[in-house]
Design a protein around this nucleic acid. Sequence first.
DNA 1: CGCCAGATTGACT
DNA 2: GTCAATCTGGCGG
Length: 191
Amino acid sequence: VKVLKKSFYQKDPKEVAKSLLGKILVRRLGDKQLKAVIVETEAYYGREDPASRAALGAPKYCVEMLYGDIAKALVYMVHANWLFNIVAHEPGKAGAVLIRAVRPIEGIEEMTKHRKAKNVFDLTNGPGKLTRALAIDRSLNGVDVTSQESEVFFCEGIHSFKIASSHRIGVRKDLKEKLRFFIAEDPFVSR
DNA sequence: CGCCAGATTGACT
DNA sequence: GTCAATCTGGCGG
């Protein structure tokens, strides 16, 4: 497996969000591995972004991490759900990419144990759903995602698909720019 | 300590 | 489509 290098994350969050589509998310769980293809992401920036956790009132550690080292997992809770982000930005800047939906490809039975769903399409098609299915919580916060030894990391994946974009979902105050990206017509994208 | 918002979800009309 | 439950950290008293 080819693990994505740290330099992959040293770009504008918007670019990283796009490049992350089609890549493989690997969750190591003891001797098991859960794998999924990333099909939907969103980009967030620093204090200039009103929807960012760097905006006023957000947990302190989120702000610090958004401005800190790249290629680290950033996990925090919103509406009783853990949300999974990767810190990604250019040097001296701030930002992160939120993983909003994935397509399970390995360890589906294990995922079903963590989260019951009517069908496989409902298992990981939302930011809070996938963190439960993949057993991602606050304990993974700060983990380096460029090492195969880590609890979570990202690998090269599929390449031929069409990227679509839209405004970000659920955000009160969004920026003008479209910062949500997803694989067009993929059944695992959130609604 | 109580109140409130928030990058959500699931159940229901 | 609507709506309430869910948890955590920040903020005011």
